[in-house]
């Protein structure tokens, strides 16, 4: 039976893909489980977007649908060249709200310089869908040998994050029924990362791996990279940027910002000698102002966090959906 946790990006999601999808499709591009599949010189990706609520501080479903697919293409090193968008609409859905999402999707794609070239709509009877679901697909071109992959990651590399962690997940969770955290300072970071990646590529940096830490958060992405690369990643807890309101909300709900979703951040791994330059390049670009080196790659396995006390703890994949812990 499908549980909410199967969609949360943790171990249950992995099991679902590995046991129910991979054996039946079995293409080599798919089995690499990168953010986008690669066919020849093209990268291809698709993503379905459902979020409650659909409009949240800092963004909305439409912006998320554009940014998510653009970012997946960027993370394999591709230059996005075109998007498609399919809308599943529930009978009775407000046209005004539809316009809002379509406009946000269009604006986000335009900002990243990617045209929307195909689309589809389906209407389902009331109750058969929750308002609006959007699926976007994207094509990107791989050029100039820029092909980041966890296989390139080596001990001695530096780990960089392009900004603060946990903003999107906490902004959305705060609005859930039964939580109602206010204050207006929790804002989603949803943004297209095409500009950041263009800047990195333009600087001629030797990028070994990139990942946008969405569901499952930075912990999940780093665990995946460490596993694929056969290395240990050691993080310095004091260097990990987290905004005050996100930290406070996580504390109230018993959550760890490392496991909370981001929609406009990238994790970057490259040779330590290029780390300072990479941080400078990111900080000069839009959405990269709070970039920081947060760790390094070593021999070994797993992801280890060094606390400000000098003690260490290992990170594991989250079991499933993040649930507030109270009692």
């Amino acid at each position: 039976m499908i549980l909410m946790g199967h969609g949360a990006g943790g171990r249950l999601s992995h099991q679902l893909v590995e046991e129910h999808f991979l054996p039946r499709f079995g293409s080599s591009a798919l089995s690499e489980l990168m953010d986008a599949g690669v066919v020849g010189e093209l990268a291809l990706t698709t993503d379905a977007f459902v979020v409650t609520p659909r409009v949240f501080p800092g963004g909305c479903l439409g912006r998320l649908a554009a940014a998510g697919t653009i970012n997946d293409l960027c993370m394999v090193g591709a230059v996005p060249v075109g998007l498609s968008a399919a809308f599943i609409l529930e009978e009775g859905f407000s046209l005004e709200e539809l316009d809002l999402h379509v406009q946000a999707l269009a604006d986000c794609a335009a900002e990243a310089g990617v045209p929307v070239v195909a689309g589809d709509t389906k209407v389902v009877p009331r109750g058969a869908a929750d308002g609006l679901f959007i699926t976007t697909s994207g094509v990107g071109r791989l050029e100039g040998g820029f092909r980041p992959s966890p296989r390139l990651v080596r001990p001695g590399d530096a780990v960089i994050v392009s900004g603060t962690l946990g903003d999107h997940g906490m902004a959305v969770m705060a609005l859930r029924e039964g939580l109602a955290l206010g204050g207006g300072e929790l804002r989603s970071d949803v943004a297209p990362l095409a500009g950041l990646v263009r800047a990195l590529r333009g600087a001629g940096l030797e990028v070994h791996a990139m990942r946008d830490p969405t569901r499952g958060g930075a912990a999940q992405s780093l665990l995946e990279i460490a596993g694929d690369a056969g290395v240990r990643i050691t993080l310095d807890e004091a260097q990990i940027p987290v905004r005050g309101p996100v930290r406070a909300a996580c504390e109230i709900l018993g959550l760890d910002p490392l496991y909370v979703a981001n929609e406009g951040k990238l994790l970057l791994i490259l040779p330590a000698a290029q780390a300072d330059e990479a941080v400078a390049v990111l900080r000069d670009a839009r959405y990269g102002q709070a970039a920081a080196v947060i760790g390094r790659v070593e021999e070994g396995r797993g992801v280890v966090l060094r606390t400000s006390l000098g003690t260490t703890r290992s990170l594991r994949m989250a079991a499933g959906e993040l649930l507030p812990r109270i009692c």
């Binding site: 206010g182 204050g183 207006g184 930290r247 406070a248 504390e251 109230i252």
Partner: peptide, 8 residues
Amino acid sequence: RGGGVELE
């Protein structure tokens, strides 16, 4: 209010 977050 605390740390930029508000609660009833």
